[in-house]
Nucleic acid binder design. Sequence first.
DNA 1: CAGTTCCGGAACTACCTAGTATCGTTTCTC
DNA 2: GAGAAACGATACTAGGTAGTTCCGGAACTG
Lengths: 212, 212
Amino acid sequence: MPPEPPEPEAAPRARGGRPRDPGRDAAIVAAALEVLAETGYERMTMDQVAARAGAGKATLYRRWPSKADLVVHAVGQIGDTPVLADLPDTGTLRGDLVALMRPQTAEDDERLLALTGGLASLLSAEPALADAAGAALVEPFVASQRLLMERARDRGEVPADADIETVALVTPSMTAFRLIVQRQPVDVPHLVRLIDTVVLPALGLAASARPA
Amino acid sequence: MPPEPPEPEAAPRARGGRPRDPGRDAAIVAAALEVLAETGYERMTMDQVAARAGAGKATLYRRWPSKADLVVHAVGQIGDTPVLADLPDTGTLRGDLVALMRPQTAEDDERLLALTGGLASLLSAEPALADAAGAALVEPFVASQRLLMERARDRGEVPADADIETVALVTPSMTAFRLIVQRQPVDVPHLVRLIDTVVLPALGLAASARPA
DNA sequence: CAGTTCCGGAACTACCTAGTATCGTTTCTC
DNA sequence: GAGAAACGATACTAGGTAGTTCCGGAACTG
């Protein structure tokens, strides 16, 4: 076990010595996520991560005791991306859902789902990782959908008895399927069609209500 | 390279010797699919497969030159399961879709999707495997949905302009997502709710049209 | 019966990678 | 300045696994 400071928080540097460079943490986590998305957990090697981060392996293991710990921590960090912070508010559910796919988000989603693909084989092997991945990767995605739909319900646009819990999974599920299984790109027209032909009708909004 | 017979087909046994037991092929493929579904490609070992099949590793390598070849071949074999052969025909689309989940199929689907999960990390690494998996695992699943929906459209139950191509992906996508990402079981009530709240409305069938 | 190929089993080789240790250097505290 | 800890780099250890080879025995051909 590494020489953990006895005090759990705000570890007062025991005594002299070069302090840890917090910038290395960020570089390593970023490199880990990149390699993870590109090659998947099993094929990702610690040497790759170290090289990509411009770090030595010792620097990695000084911070995380194992590859699994590094990945769990790195995946957990993603949740901080403030997807939920600035949700669109256009007045209609369709407007909100379409606005949700601004380019930045589309790239984010693609990266997120590449990560999910890289982790997929682990989801059935490492419970801790499965939880971390679920919470950090897919839950914010689903939650943003759910929030927009609940808001539409609260303002009377969507029937009160709509099964939002289920419908909020449609876009995440079908996007993941398209990216990971079908290996086809997710572009805006595709997402718009998904919204108009599946999501909105499932919420009781006639497909004909969409603009031409 | 193994001593392939010069004639590509119907290799006439060069001369004497014990003939290959075709039963071993089946046992090995079955074992490979089992282990693959349980542990995923990366963690599956050839020793595991050989042990499960009650075979020696030499028997495996006498037939397939590598682990990847065995898996590609095994996955390709699955397509032969005649999912499309005996589709239900109850007169209504909802009846057909619900009938499609007879217990046998539910188990099949779960196994199929466990396989997809086991292969997920490879889908971004081995193109040959990705193609084989797509064709053998998901396409029959999607095709059965599509067929039932096209039949409903042809008899006028569903509007002629319904986006069947897209809606046929709903159940496969959301089932895969639930099994692989959410790690929750797929039971009949869940699938029925999916059909009633998402699939049928997306095809223009009012959710209220469903039986209580 | 002789020769050949298969069989399950097991030992063996070759390689890859997680994790550790060490080196020379840098950056901090006292 | 002296000591301590972190840094990148590299060499090293330990374990696991793909793929090979050999064994005794079985099944086939001629």
